[in-house]
Design a protein around this nucleic acid. Sequence first.
DNA 1: CCCCAATTAAGTATTTCCCTTATTTTAAGT
DNA 2: ACTTAAAATAAGGGAAATACTTAATTGGGG
Lengths: 217, 217
Amino acid sequence: MSIKIILADDHAMLRHGLSKSFQNEKDIEVVGQAKDGRTTVELARELSPNVIIMDIGMPDLNGIEATRQIIKECPKVKIIALSMHSSKNFIIEMFKAGAAGYLLKDCEFDELVNAIRLVMTNKTYISPAISDVVVDNYMRQPANAKESAFSILSQREREVLQLLTEGKATKQIGKRLHISAKTVEVHRLNLMNKLKIDNIAQLTKYAVQEGLTRPEP
Amino acid sequence: MSIKIILADDHAMLRHGLSKSFQNEKDIEVVGQAKDGRTTVELARELSPNVIIMDIGMPDLNGIEATRQIIKECPKVKIIALSMHSSKNFIIEMFKAGAAGYLLKDCEFDELVNAIRLVMTNKTYISPAISDVVVDNYMRQPANAKESAFSILSQREREVLQLLTEGKATKQIGKRLHISAKTVEVHRLNLMNKLKIDNIAQLTKYAVQEGLTRPEP
DNA sequence: CCCCAATTAAGTATTTCCCTTATTTTAAGT
DNA sequence: ACTTAAAATAAGGGAAATACTTAATTGGGG
């Protein structure tokens, strides 16, 4: 029986290319693709894959949040981050969210295949290209004391923050999250109080810096 | 008679250091310092300096706008850009705004001194570190066809855009620019229509990409 | 089992936004 | 110099969003 995987990345080109490449691997089957985090969460529920290849910078719901939510629902699913970013924050948060592996996008395809087979044996795969960052983090834990969005804000607040900083109106956010616009308002108010920011402009810059949303308009 | 210069940079540390360094140059006198573009414009009016050393990334009013305004009022003033950015857009727009020189911040102090003395003879100084960018621009003009904020928006609109994306409220912007809040509203509406963006979040990302405001919250 | 934080939601007063209209300046073209 | 266009200024008014308050419900952790 083959390994069922889902590809989550906002670039169709990359998904298509990977999908083609996986056709040569007889024990791996691409059962689904998603261009944003929210779709990925839904597909994970419907298709019950073994592995998800997850980009971090995606619209609507970023890869870290998506991972958090998927792992909460189905802890057996193995999620491998495939990201452009080698910055400490992303790597650490991705593993905190429950990822089973982390690779950079400029790695070889074979490395990804190896990683997939490895995580299927309940092991964790850390790409050599980023292993030093992970080690470094354990070496000087106290230096990493500054609280980031991931620790101060609740999950819902982070979701609202991302949609807010992607230009969505309160109403739209309510619809997307299936909650009242009034609730979204409260989340917005609370998160802005926590961050001590009282305008969307600075909030957007903050979210970009934290990697919760992407810098492109 | 010595050359009177103004230092415009938001980092007090840099201003202080430069100021100290200039004490060794007997023919150069630092007559004023400013931490933002708007203050620089005022100082330029009051102190009538010969040269202004101008950073680009400054709050309230960025270096490019400040240059535009100062040159409009006093075309004799020589403005030398001292920037971290070596990207084409900044360099081109700075010269369009009327700058007499452009240096990167990691150049030698002596290069800056040379540049100051050179522009005083009505020559233009382009740092070797960026000269290729300038040449490159003339080589393939048509490639540079995509319109940036500097070309589509009016000066007032760019000013409003910067303040808006720095988190200022309409009222505050009106006060700062000495115009009615209603007028600011119109400028905001017009610029958003021109850019085809209808929310502050995306507008902020756009302004950051165009260098009109800084990425830090 | 109780408590705290998170999530949900509504009411209301205030503010902002959107659109239209209009006058005055400034810039540009011929 | 004269005409036109664009930019900058501003007000009015209804629609919409926001700030702030209050509160019910839920879900773990001690």
